[in-house]
Each structure stands twice: as structure tokens, then as C-alpha cells.
Nucleic acid binder design. Structure first.
Lengths: 240, 240
DNA sequence: AAATATCGGTTGTAAATATAACAAAAGGTG
DNA sequence: CACCTTTTGTTATATTTACAACCGATATTT
């Protein structure tokens, strides 16, 4: 990994201009102007680094102080268990942030690593400095804190929600739990889902094939209708 | 729910003294002095309210702006699905905080409600004001932000970790995933768990009885040893 | 249009799980 | 200690799931 840019220093303006659109649209900086972003990133000790494919961005048990924003490329978060089994937790794409959990709570020295999936550009920011208000005229600092809290709140909500689905005992219950949420979110008994069958099965931690069987049964039972990725909940009665 | 105390006003000192030990030891204010806490809570528009048993502290789809700290008593977080099925997500006891997710991201107008399990005293704090630095000489404000970020990071870590266990397909894999984490956390292949069998089964979303069967099998197979709540992992080989 | 790949649905079978019912062990109380 | 309650372990059985293998539909490539 090679640092190629530091905010607050004399740098190539081109590189910055290239990546500014991603920064501007990221959840951390949404609504801020370029000038404000520059000011904030100077405040946060922002640096941009390039990471080659399959190189580690951080490693399990590293002491992490910075969170990252993927400017280009993508990376994956991996977990290693006691026996060295590696499993992929998630992919982090362009515009998404990562590492905020470990940067906010360094004691969670962790079994989790971040690896570049391809050649990637990463913007690193020091979280300690986000929490610590600077004395400068960095008036958007509190907006930044607000944004970070918002990002973490959304993540916690998403995780809680997923646990709710996955904790159900049968595939049918898992599906209905997920569908119920979609109905409540969309405000309609008809909704589209952003998953392929395989992705939905992975999300709910069930076998794709078994899930397809269950979906068909539910349609036969008159509980749901579906066509491709569009679903409809047909029952006002508790189907369980 | 009845407000009985507001920080920054002339209030009964007794009530404050009664609950100060809980506040001081809560994760939000850990390390702060009583004077600092008073200053911060004035800053945050802190109020103390009493809530009777089985009364709602907040209701699904309320617009939540405050997070809470349980000073005495306890409450439960409930979720209602589309069909009105109510399930209990968690219990929140003395010294614990709740509602921070919704207060940080009000758009998550939610299917989740908080209900008093018994007569309870709750300290409410405005999260918007946590994120927004006050102009006062409230020097511990950034410590507070830091603490809040830390709390949310720990929660996200805990949730991610639980998803990792629950997402495994078989009971044995779920158990081993959990045990592996305990080994990594404790740094030893021997560890104690804070769950009864029923609680562990609920945590891993499996049937208690089936889990007991699996635990016995694993002992027979020479993968683990256990006695009451003390477990030992016996294998350096990947048991799966 | 033929070849290829991807995706969704189906089937049969082996494996795993939930469930109920019960027994044994542990803990608490008068 | 005797009694009761709670927790943990065991067994048998019905249900549910995973898995592999296959087919057909759809989309993509050449």
C-alpha cells in the first residue's frame, strides 16, 4: 500500500479532482461542498493510498486508527476463525466506507482483515479526529459527526433486522420475516427485492434450492404471489 | 411517562444523587466526574422521567430524537411484524442505553417499540446535541462523542459476530463458530460462557434439546470437553 | 442462429433439526 | 432432610433442510 496524497499538503490537484465525485456522494460527506470537504479532510488527516490486488489493507489484530472510503476498485472483509478457516464477510465497493467499527473501538482488535479485491484507491481518515472537535473554523465538523453516527446507526439497524430474519427456525418463517419487513418499508403488499434467488438464499442463510421449493409451496398455499423479483403478500391473516 | 427532572434547572438534588452512581458507570459517561456529567447533561437537555410498568417509552413509528439510559428498573425492546406478531428483541437493564440507533438516524422510523418491564426511571438525552458541539466550555463533549461512537461500534461488532454464528447451517458449526470466537477472545482453549443451555440455544437460534444432543456428540467425537459452563476446545485440526 | 452461460424451478435422498416427553442432576427452601 | 423447581441430558419420531443432479427458460456471445 502506497500513500500518494495527503490533504493539507501541496498535492496534485488532478488526483483530487478525479476522486472528488465519489467523496462528495459518500454517506460521510453528503451535502458538503468541495471546499468544505477539503477543509474537513485536512482536519482529519486524510490521505489517499493505492493498494494492489490481494494486498492487505488491514490485518486481523492490527491496531486500527483510520477508517477508509473506497475511491476506486473494491475490497473484501474477511474473517479467520481459530482453525484458520477464512470466510468472506462482505464486499466494499466504490463510495462505501469500512473499518469505522474498529477505528471507533480499537479494543476490538479483531479477527477481521480487509483485502483489496483489485487495484484500489482508498481514502483514509483518522476517526479520533472526527470525534475530537478541531479549533479551526471547520464548521462542518459537527455535520460530519452526525453523518458518521447516521452511517453507524443504519448499519446497526440493518444488522438487527437481518438477525431477526436469520434467527427464525424454518425457511418459510425466514422468508415471511423478510417479506413482512419489505411490506412495512414499502407501505405496500407488493414489492420488488434487490436480490437474485441465490443472493436472497445467502442473505437468509438457507440453501437456494430448498428456498425455491419453499417459495413454490407458499405460492401454492396462497400466501404469496411472485414473478421474477416482484412479490406480493396475499394474506392478512397470520400465516404461521 | 412523567418528567420529573431536567438538568440545568433547579431540581431536587436528592434524586440526582440517588442515580448518579448508575450514570457514572454507564458506558456513555465512564471516566467523567459528577461535575462534568452535570455540565454535559445540561448541554444535552437531559431529563429524567418515570415510566410505569407496561407503558410505552417509545412506540413503533414515533419520531425519536432522544436516546435513553435506564437508571432503575428495566425495559424491553419489541418488534411487530406486518401481521401484528410481537417478538421481544432484547431486554435493557439498569445502566444500559437504548434508542441510540433511532435517535441517530430518525429516518429509520421503525417497527420497534420500547416498553417498561417494571416501574423504571429513564434518563433521556438529545442525540442531536451530542453531535453538535456546544459553544460552552463543555470540554468533555468530545469525550462523550467518543464514548457514543465506541458504544455503537461495540454493538455493530457484536451484531456482526452473532450473524456469523447464526448464519452457519448446522448446529455443530454454529457452536464451533461461537467457541472459536471465545477462544480467540480469551486467548485460551478453555473458557467459560455466560449463558445457560437455554440462553445459548436462543443466542444461536437453535433448539435447546437438539443443541444438547450435538454438544454430547461433539464431546464423544473428542472435539470439546465441557463441564457446566466451562468448555474446552480439544482440536487443532479443522473439525469441519 | 448456434453455442454458451446464468438463473430459476423441480426432484429424490440423506442428513439435520424441532419437538415432545421423560429422566437425571443441581439448586433452593422450609 | 424431604420437597419442589429449574436446569440439563437423552430418546424417539415427524418435520425440515441440504445437497446433488437435472431441466427448461432467458440472456449473451460469437
Amino acid at each position: 500500500m502506497k500513500k500518494i496524497f495527503s490533504f493539507g499538503e501541496n498535492n496534485s490537484v488532478e488526483l483530487l479532482q478525479e476522486h472528488m465525485p465519489v467523496i462528495k456522494s459518500s454517506p460521510l460527506f453528503i451535502g458538503a461542498s468541495e471546499k468544505e470537504i477539503n477543509s474537513m479532510l485536512t482536519c482529519l488527516g486524510g490521505t489517499i493510498a493505492k493498494c494492489d490486488k490481494d494486498k492487505y489493507i488491514f490485518h486481523a489484530n492490527d491496531n486500527i486508527t483510520d477508517m477508509g472510503l473506497v475511491l476506486s476498485g473494491s475490497l473484501r472483509l474477511e474473517r479467520n476463525d481459530y482453525w484458520g478457516n477464512r470466510s468472506i464477510l462482505s464486499y466494499v465497493g466504490r463510495g462505501e466506507i469500512f473499518g469505522e467499527v474498529f477505528a471507533c473501538e480499537p479494543l476490538l482488535s479483531t479477527s477481521i482483515s480487509a483485502v483489496a479485491n483489485e487495484e484500489s484507491m482508498i481514502l483514509f481518515m483518522n476517526v479520533q479526529r472526527i470525534a475530537t472537535m478541531c479549533g479551526n473554523n471547520c464548521i462542518y465538523h459537527s455535520q460530519l459527526i452526525h453523518n458518521l453516527l447516521s452511517v453507524m446507526a443504519k448499519k446497526a439497524y440493518m444488522l438487527t433486522s437481518k438477525i431477526n430474519h436469520v434467527s427464525k427456525r424454518t425457511t418459510r418463517e425466514k422468508l415471511l420475516s423478510y417479506f413482512s419487513e419489505q411490506v412495512l418499508l414499502s407501505g405496500s403488499t407488493e414489492f420488488s427485492i434487490p436480490f437474485s434467488r441465490q443472493e436472497l438464499a445467502d442473505f437468509l442463510s438457507v440453501n437456494r434450492s430448498a428456498m425455491c421449493v419453499e417459495l413454490s409451496k407458499m405460492q401454492t398455499d396462497g400466501i404469496i404471489n411472485f414473478n421474477k423479483n416482484r412479490f406480493e403478500l396475499l394474506t392478512d391473516e397470520n400465516p404461521m
